[in-house]
Design a protein around this nucleic acid. Structure first.
Lengths: 207, 207
DNA sequence: CGCTCCATGTGGATGACATTAACATCCGCA
DNA sequence: TGCGGATGTTAATGTCATCCACATGGAGCG
């Protein structure tokens, strides 16, 4: 009840929507996706349990907003990590690294982002964070750092999937369960080695 | 013991544990992980809401058992799909394909299997389904179908992650959101192409 | 054959949750 | 100044997970 230190308790919060999304991130990080509840969120923000429904249709919608926020942050991080390099192959690696770091930093947020079956702006955001990869791959192909025999989009999609899978197995303890593990850096490194090491002879379609 | 079709209602179910796990899979497939509830499960099996707790410590434990069942099935499928081939590289591809097919067939089960943060025999099962890959990679390396400059386990881990990521993005609509999509087969194919296509010049560590 | 015991079920709490409905406030605008 | 809708509040409703005390009945013992 002690909102605003000055003792003035306003009936109207004034910036509930925003506060909700922010606090939701914290609550999520604390309790995990499963432990997250509207009731507790409202409690923390100092508002009644029904109030959030004036701003979000449902718990899912609220989480959708949180996910959107997450995508914004991810995009920001990706942008920062890339900016300067002029080696697209290197940038692609940084991309993967950044992806993993983000997930490592806020696993629950990451989960919400990719779990949000309920649609939202999520698709758009996902597209936005994927787009740069295709560009980088194309650059790499032109620079001769990557095989041009496969469409850039296809390679990009594969790289994305690899980063995604690496990330999830890492977070979920999949690698540990199998007796392998390591930091995000080590994982991306090893993935990249596996990827760039060339099959001998010809790259024939053994399949 | 199965349902006495016309007979009397037995106070003791006789095979509750088993029935629960079975029905849970159906319920899960129907309602999804989030929609799954102990109450409804009990209702469907024709038993009181408390009964399941005689057999499982918690909802999580029940789901853990379902996950274990899932791993069994996955292992079976993997075993079947591999059996005959003598080309390890091809087998690896089949492995990925099988993985995706399984997930496509029972997305909720798949989710439960890899979401089960609560531990259980899951680790063991995961290890078991991963193990064959390392072997196949090693074979492929010896046969010259894969670069030997990288440890087999590392490559296997990477392939696993790739398959996992491909699967999740496929299921979650990630690819569709980005304007790319396709069947499991097409996805694995394209991933494999991307993987096997050789970088030109030298495979130097650009990074 | 009858009796007792324990695993397995039953009913009925408890406390949390998501979501809604009906009512209260108050901000901004005519 | 006064009013209407946006934003909050309280008080349900119905579902959930889980627990407790009691019921049942099959298995083994006498």
């Amino acid at each position: 009840m002690e909102r605003r230190g000055a003792g003035k308790r306003r009936y109207h919060h004034g910036a509930l929507r925003e506060s909700l999304v922010e606090e939701a991130q914290r609550l999520l990080a604390e309790k995990g996706t499963a432990g997250f509840s509207m009731h507790e969120l409202a409690r923390r923000v100092g508002v009644s349990a029904a109030a959030p429904y004036r701003h979000f249709e449902s718990r899912g919608a609220l989480l959708g907003a949180v996910a959107a926020r997450g995508y914004e942050r991810l995009l920001l991080m990706l942008g920062e990590s890339l900016g300067e390099g002029d080696d697209p192959v290197h940038d692609l690696k940084l991309f993967g690294l950044c992806y993993m770091r983000f997930a490592e930093e806020s696993p629950e947020l990451f989960e919400v982002m990719f779990t949000d079956r309920g649609r939202g702006r999520a698709d758009e955001a996902q597209r936005a964070s994927f787009a740069p990869m295709t560009g980088l791959v194309a650059q790499a192909q032109q620079a001769g750092g990557m095989p041009a025999s496969v469409p850039a989009e296809q390679i990009a999609r594969f790289l994305w999937a690899a980063a995604h899978g690496l990330t999830l197995l890492h977070l979920g303890g999949g690698f540990a369960a199998v007796g392998l593990d390591g930091t995000a850096e080590a994982l991306v490194d090893s993935a990249w080695s596996a990827l760039l090491a060339q099959p001998p002879g010809r790259g024939g379609p053994a399949v």
